[in-house]
Design a protein around this nucleic acid. Sequence first.
DNA 1: AATGAATGAGCGTTCATTCAT
DNA 2: GATGAATGAACGCTCATTCAT
Lengths: 198, 198, 198, 198
Amino acid sequence: MNRRLTQRGRERRQQLMSYAITRFAENGYHPTSVAEIVHGLGVGKGVFYWYFASKEELFLEILRDAQRQLRRRQEAAIADEPDPVRRIELGIRASIAWIDENRDVVKLLQFAATEERFAPVLRRGQDVAVADTARHVKEGIVEGRIRDLDPFVLSHAVLGVAGHLAREFVHERSQSVDDVAEAAVAFCLGGLMGSPPD
Amino acid sequence: MNRRLTQRGRERRQQLMSYAITRFAENGYHPTSVAEIVHGLGVGKGVFYWYFASKEELFLEILRDAQRQLRRRQEAAIADEPDPVRRIELGIRASIAWIDENRDVVKLLQFAATEERFAPVLRRGQDVAVADTARHVKEGIVEGRIRDLDPFVLSHAVLGVAGHLAREFVHERSQSVDDVAEAAVAFCLGGLMGSPPD
Amino acid sequence: MNRRLTQRGRERRQQLMSYAITRFAENGYHPTSVAEIVHGLGVGKGVFYWYFASKEELFLEILRDAQRQLRRRQEAAIADEPDPVRRIELGIRASIAWIDENRDVVKLLQFAATEERFAPVLRRGQDVAVADTARHVKEGIVEGRIRDLDPFVLSHAVLGVAGHLAREFVHERSQSVDDVAEAAVAFCLGGLMGSPPD
Amino acid sequence: MNRRLTQRGRERRQQLMSYAITRFAENGYHPTSVAEIVHGLGVGKGVFYWYFASKEELFLEILRDAQRQLRRRQEAAIADEPDPVRRIELGIRASIAWIDENRDVVKLLQFAATEERFAPVLRRGQDVAVADTARHVKEGIVEGRIRDLDPFVLSHAVLGVAGHLAREFVHERSQSVDDVAEAAVAFCLGGLMGSPPD
DNA sequence: AATGAATGAGCGTTCATTCAT
DNA sequence: GATGAATGAACGCTCATTCAT
């Protein structure tokens, strides 16, 4: 692989990835055949293997792409906000927005987590995301605005809430993204800073 | 199906389910063949189809079983605790404990969420779990101990945190279940009751 | 693989091998598809893979079988003949007879020699055959009846003549096996014992 | 095909043939793809089909070339040697030398013999070679220096020994070409002229 | 209840060949 | 002359499922 592609080539490749994402998301990775993908695009089978070494390689590519995009989105949202708590909030909002806009890839990320074959790629991305958040949490703890618990656990909790709410509400029960984001932020900030339960 | 089974028959069936769970969790549902399952148990293919109508049926059975178990566990934990907030806490602890003890099935639940074929079964279970939690949340709101936000959103947030932390920490980073439960409870109660972020 | 087979199973397996040999010999190994083999036998594709791990494995099995058979045939022919030169002669005759009766497998042996993938198996068989012959040649040299040249080279020469004549004459120009054997023996004994070319 | 080629064109064509020979010899004819050949040469696929009508045509070309070359080599070696037995000897030496220098094509000739598709071309070449040798053998018989057996069988035997020894020894067991040639000549002349075995 | 042989549609992948550029 | 994108039939192989025993 790693072909040098013409402009047209790059477009074809993108087209294949996009279509594969929708099919994988709708039908599942395994149940979706390469034949189905190329047929849906009205091209021959060879086209697929001209651009991707294998079905698995395509899937990994999708995974990597998604993680790269999400991270870029979060970084852009945070930019140079100086307040760590506010950075966390902006991160949550950016994540939820991205999840909302990429429900299909999100499903694929979830699926990838369930097969040992794909899990490592995912784990790496997760670690990065947690580390990113943990930095802000630590600052918040130092400033005395976030309670003094393990910053990694807290980061995971934040990510868990954001991801879960975004998936469940925006996709399944069709609430507005903003409402969901609002709730997620409220809950997380409460969880991070809130007075202990007694 | 729905055969009338002898004692031995019921054991065989259970044996098939247990082994299938470990194989599905390790390898994925699709990549695990019926042949692999019966071979691992040292029996012929006929055995499988004596007890299950199809591979899919077996998987659905596993799903239903898991949800039934988890719910029973939560109910047992809550028992007749009168304090709604305390009930939420006990529910979180019970969930985390169950997830810890059933990492394999948990993976299968995650996978099931990614295929339209299995998602409905899951959704039903989720709805029940959320409704259960929401009842306690509502009581808490009425009592003025939980802030006045949409109880369903709050319930989802709680479930999201508990599930996420249990999966990530207990399984992947090998922390003690109790520590994780502690953190989850703290975060959730903070999120539920916590003073809003200024 | 390495299945425990019933009587019927063993027959099926043999049937597959026999038919594959004729197809491979007629058409070539690569151009003959598994589909062609099973279709010719009127069975489903699964049958093939029930008995053989792969097309390649089947081919190797054929190779091993052939070498085993040929060797057994030679040993039976030589039995307990005390005269080493006579043993060589009997070996030549046995080889030619076997080649005559197994023209199809012989073609496969020739083909196998041309692909690095199969060559090693062949080489091993050849080495054994040469070593067998070389033993007799050495004895003949000790007895002063065969000229004092490298016994391995002489053995190879003998095998080369026998194989070549059998293939060329019996198969291609339809001479009687006995005539060919006679000529091969005469030539080889001349080559082994004959006075040097002045 | 049969394009009129420029000097550069003729070189390209030769380059394709040479590289194809090494790939075919190493990997086998069928397992070597056209893509592999053009890729190895760093050119596009069009180049291949500019010079050859098909993969098969290229292979046949290689075959014809090889036979032409070998024959020319033998004729040059024999030149105008008047002694028929000496001509045979010189022919053997020339063949062995050529085989030594063209191990790759030799493998292809061997392969070609195993597919009905290519065998005819080969057969024709073989017939010519045998006829060439048979002429000398006949003369030798007339002169009373070679024993009175079927000259075609004797020629085949000679060719068989020479080919077999050259292939087996020079390539596989790395003996010097001259030693092998010496042994082949000795064996063959013994076989041709040698006193009958008793 | 259980076995193991059989089925055959369907899978991921390859590759000789074509052709617009 | 040459490129690289495209084609699609065919390949080796898998596997859920069936069924005679």
